[in-house]
Amino acid sequence: MLTLPTTLTQVQAQDCLRQLTVGVHSEPAAQVVVDAADLRSFDSSALAVLLALRRECARAGKRFAVQGLPQRLRDLASLYGIEGLLPSA
């Protein structure tokens, strides 16, 4: 399982994505679950990171799911029309 940090804004997005991408390829399971339960401070960059991880999982032949997505981030995903791209674990 991969874990998002407590803060994920534009400032942290690139480094966070780099670290999590390594994690995608290290996960032995056919499904990569991203735990977002600790996420407290974020902007739309958090969605960009999750979508990039989804694409990386697809390239690696793995399924992608998210658990613990904060309600505000779910609302933002819904506003952008991408909630279906972030399946719950």
Rank of each mutant, 00 (worst) to 15 (best):
A30F: 01
A46T: 08
L39H: 07
A65L: 09
S41K: 09
A30M: 03
V34D: 01
I82T: 10
Q14M: 11
C57H: 03
T9F: 12
A89Y: 03
C16L: 00
A30P: 06
V49K: 10
M1S: 07
A36K: 08
A77C: 10
T21C: 08
A60T: 03
D35T: 04
I82N: 10
L4H: 03
S44T: 15
A30G: 14
S41H: 12
S45F: 13
L2S: 07
A36D: 07
R72C: 02
V11F: 13
G81M: 10
R74H: 08
A89H: 06
E56S: 09
L69W: 05
E56A: 14
R59H: 13
L39S: 02
S44W: 12
A89F: 05
V24I: 13
V34H: 02
A77L: 05
L50W: 02
V49E: 12
K62H: 02
L86N: 05
V33D: 00
R72K: 09
L69K: 05
L50I: 04
G23N: 04
G68E: 08
S26V: 01
L79A: 08
P87L: 14
E56H: 00
A48Q: 15
Q12V: 01
T3K: 13
S78M: 01
A29G: 13
R18L: 10
D15K: 11
C16P: 00
